[in-house]
Write a protein that binds this DNA or RNA. Structure first.
Lengths: 345, 345
DNA sequence: GTGAAAGCGCTAACAG
DNA sequence: CTGTTAGCGCTTTCAC
């Protein structure tokens, strides 16, 4: 059975397509179409199981009703949670969400964004960018294309951004370790290190050390996504067993933390007795990890909600100056720093 | 600057839209359009930064180039992993993937499927259904709408399905516990229990006990998604401290397992010494949980790949009889059953 | 080898 | 209050 279209309803009722369209879009009132006619239309639509064709409508109005979301990896709980919130929020507003993963490769992200915009004609994009070059974004901005950055922001351009105070979050974490008596605190970063959040976190780490007059050499290592196991093992080993003789480790995100944890276990080092650990980004799994990890948690729901708000503002047509929403992080103290132990200072 | 359309290219080159369309769709050869003309067209398209409008094309061809995926919760690592694979596979074939979460509520899933099909005009749907009623699916089948079930299958209808041998997986898990010396093995299920996978897993559990002549009473509890903490606490307490006095727990999926783990920790019961634990469904986090959990792992990538293959077969137009792909599970032995300990039988 | 023309289903300007 | 008409951008049939 063929799908019912506006025309079918119109013909069955001996009215025009226009009328039907108006009624079904709830503009009947405003055009003063009689109650009775409206009822007939609704009834017939129901009867024929009518559903508007999004593509036809989109073609006509120039609006696809789709929002795009590009993240590094949707199977990372961090992005998955944000994505859920964004999906929920845009759905409320009548949009669909198209989610893509860039796998942390800049060229892929570039293509994904092009695809979403040019082919799929999404009405706006939310992105946790992995690109160093901001050329594409400058271009989008010129075109006034609705765009908001989450988590990571591009270099040197005013932009709509929702994220957390990475500097302060890292600072708090490191200071917590210091208060608990740790001094030789190593940092495990991850390439590509130009990502804005990473840089801010490293800065927070450095300044916390400086404030407490701690001078360390070779205390920072960066692992790499495409050879995560090997590079993590090397980094951890060097930090813990090498010159630094680390008594604490600060990992720059959850993905890195998970890998560190495994290496540490393999090396039979005790956490927090031998080395303490804090990780930027919380996730459910850390509640029951061995040991439960102390983390810097981000307000993921809030990030999702705010990003949608910012996007909608741009989509409303008014030209709004780029806005940033910097949200606070929260130090979630569990057991990987030993602050719960009797002997803790 | 307005976007370039076929017409723009045609006018700039003084040829027809038809010609341009043919060339750009790589049908130039087949229609015997001269090399030279083709080159001109490609060049101009590049120059004007032309991108086909997916909506216009879709309207004309009746194909949206979109595949829908409906799961319970995309932020559950289990579905996130499958989703990644599916996204990768359909992208290879030139489709986009639209992912929606039903939150385990049947009515929501029903609406989501309607929306995808009627409004968004997706060309096929892959679903891990949470519906008990199969009415919608019967209807879809009548219409020959491309549909494949993953993980969970609907009751009493031949369907295209990709999943694992849940019965055997559960059987193996329980038998492993028995071999390790456990006898009073409780099972923690989750409502709604009509879900096919759950039923099969419970069956596997029961038969493993039967095979070893173990008779248990009140050894099965079901917790509930919408009040997970409280119901889990009750279930675990009753199983472990109550009449059964359980020395082992089998949880029916990862979500339930995570909650059990927390309750167990809170109750200060030692795993595996006091009670052993196995969970159906593996996830990365269980590698470093306390303790590392022994699990029944599903081949998630394979499930994703196969489901896309099955979907494409249906979309190709030929009528194919419903097919099932039942893949094997794998028992991943870690430390929550004590089989690694010296004293294990 | 190439072009004209129709039409997918919808919306919106305009006419009455 | 309701209808006519045009057209969004593309593909495809048919004609030359």
């Amino acid at each position: 059975m063929k799908r019912a279209s506006l025309k079918d309803i119109a013909e069955a009722l001996n009215v025009s397509k226009t009328l039907v369209s108006l009624v079904l879009n709830n503009k009947g009132e405003q055009w003063g179409i009689s109650e009775e006619t409206q009822k007939k239309v609704f009834k017939k639509a129901e009867e024929l199981n009518y559903h508007p064709n999004q593509m036809a409508r989109g073609l006509r109005t120039g609006k696809s009703n789709i929002i795009g979301l590009v993240v590094a990896d949707i199977s990372n709980p961090f992005y998955a949670k944000i994505s859920r919130t964004i999906e929920r929020e845009v759905t409320k507003l009548g949009f669909q969400l198209l989610v893509c993963s860039s796998d942390e490769v800049p060229e892929k992200e570039y293509k994904l964004i092009e695809l979403l915009k040019d082919r799929q004609r999404v009405e706006g994009i939310i992105v946790a960018t992995t690109q160093e070059n901001n050329g594409q974004f400058i271009q989008l901005k010129k075109e006034q294309f609705p765009l908001v950055f989450i988590d990571r922001k591009p270099e040197e351009m005013p932009s709509n951004y929702v994220g957390v105070d990475n500097y302060q979050g890292a600072f708090d974490a490191v200071e917590h370790m210091i208060k608990v008596g740790k001094r030789r605190i190593g940092l495990i970063n991850v390439s590509p290190t130009y990502i804005s959040t990473l840089q801010e976190r490293v800065e927070g780490y450095k300044n916390a050390l400086k404030k407490h007059n701690i001078k360390l050499v070779n205390s920072i290592h960066a692992v790499s996504y495409n050879d995560i196991e090997k590079t993590t093992e090397e980094a951890v080993r060097d930090l813990v067993k090498g010159q630094l003789n680390a008594d604490a480790l600060f990992t720059v995100n959850n993905y890195v933390a998970v890998n560190c944890l495994q290496v540490l276990h393999k090396m039979n080092v005790r956490i927090p007795e031998d080395v303490a650990m804090i990780c930027f980004d919380d996730m459910d799994a850390f509640k029951f990890s061995h040991p439960p990890l102390t983390t810097v948690a981000q307000p993921l729901e809030k990030i999702g909600e705010e990003s949608v708000k910012l996007l909608m503002k741009q989509m409303s047509g008014k030209t709004v100056p780029p806005q940033s929403r910097i949200l606070p992080t929260k130090l979630v103290i569990r057991k990987s720093c030993g602050s719960h132990l009797a002997g803790a200072k």
